[in-house]
């Protein structure tokens, strides 16, 4: 059967959820062959096998951490040469898209980014994309070369599908460009203990209406009552109330959770671009005319300083 390369996003061997979602989609097209690179690569094999990887190609080298993007492109190119896949799937992170683009160019292939769904088609895989701030849905395919497609988090369910997951060492020769951009130092982000924003099933966001960094405690308390990630509008981020890594929208993260709760957010097009594909949308805003109410399944017109604490308390009570 045809093989599909899946690029594994992991941290020291811990596989991130979007990669497991890619395995679900890859199985619709062929047999997933995973490629795991860098420190802890071999440790990924167990969970990848449980989710359908027939093979796991691994390679560890310091270059993957010490230089930007290109070493990973070299490795994927080597994997593609070895496997001759029918498609290459990469998680749609900022880095994932850069890796995918350079790989596509080297393979002489077209590239599609930010797919939200994928299915097999007569002329190769067909990707669904959500464009123009989710006002349009397109169906596209790659018409030349081996399709290289990046897929957004939360685009498919994680499904157990036990497979062999045989680990094979990938042989990689780095190109002369691999060491072009040096990572001089790296400061890891402090973990908040909350779910990853792009992967979370529930996202609770605050905007300008939250009116101050200290008031974000209200948003965090609501998030914690639901086991949710915390998001923020650009207005809140620009005001310095919440970190940019939590920004939702066109120039922040694009999220697609089961539930999105927006408090004190007006619903500007650039914010909607990052959350409009959420399954259920809820808003709290004191302005009944706020555009966010056009999107909601449930909205409360009111002061968030009254509504949000009451909601949090009620959830905690109901949970017992």
């Amino acid at each position: 059967m045809a093989e599909v390369l899946v690029y594994v996003d992991h941290a020291d061997g811990a596989v991130r959820k979007p990669t497991l979602e890619l395995l679900t989609l890859a199985r619709r097209i062929g047999e997933p062959v995973a490629v795991a690179l860098g420190n802890g690569a071999a440790d990924t094999a167990g969970v990848l096998a449980e989710h359908g990887a027939v093979k796991v190609l691994t390679h560890e080298a310091a270059e993957y951490a010490d230089y930007l993007v290109v070493p990973k492109v070299d490795a994927l190119q080597a994997a593609a040469a070895q496997v001759s896949p029918v498609a290459v799937l990469v998680p749609s992170s900022a880095e994932g898209k850069e890796i995918a683009a350079r790989l596509a160019l080297r393979l002489g292939s077209g590239i599609l980014t930010d797919a939200v769904d994928l299915e097999a088609g007569d002329e190769g895989p067909v990707a669904t994309q959500s464009v123009f701030a989710a006002a349009y849905t397109t169906r596209s395919r790659v018409s030349r070369g081996t399709p290289v497609i990046t897929v957004k988090p939360n685009s498919a369910a994680v499904e157990p599908a036990p497979a062999a997951g045989a680990v094979e060492a990938l042989s990689v020769t780095f190109s002369d460009k691999a060491r072009g951009t040096q990572v001089v130092s790296r400061t890891p982000r402090e973990s908040t203990g909350r779910p990853e924003l792009t992967e979370a099933a529930i996202v609770v966001s605050g905007g300008r209406g939250v009116n101050g960094a200290e008031n974000f405690a209200l948003i965090e308390a609501l998030a914690d009552s639901l086991g949710a990630a915390v998001g923020a509008s650009r207005a809140a981020v620009d005001a310095g109330w919440y970190p940019h890594t939590n920004q939702v929208g066109q120039t922040g993260k694009s999220v697609s959770p089961q539930l999105y709760i927006a408090s004190g957010i007006s619903g500007a097009i650039q914010h909607r671009a990052g959350m409009q594909t959420s399954k259920t949308i809820v808003a709290v805003n004191k302005d009944a005319e706020a555009p966010i109410f056009d999107l909601v399944d449930y909205g409360v017109v009111g002061d968030l300083f009254d509504v949000v604490p009451q909601l949090t308390e009620e959830i905690n009570t109901r949970k017992g």
Partner: peptide, 23 residues
């Protein structure tokens, strides 16, 4: 000369109107 092809583009249906309550 494109290596990708858009086969269809459909306008996303407006989200069905939700319930809005006043606090």
């Amino acid at each position: 000369g494109a290596w990708t092809k858009v086969e269809a583009a459909t306008e996303r249906p407006a989200r069905s109107a939700g319930t809005i309550v006043k606090d």
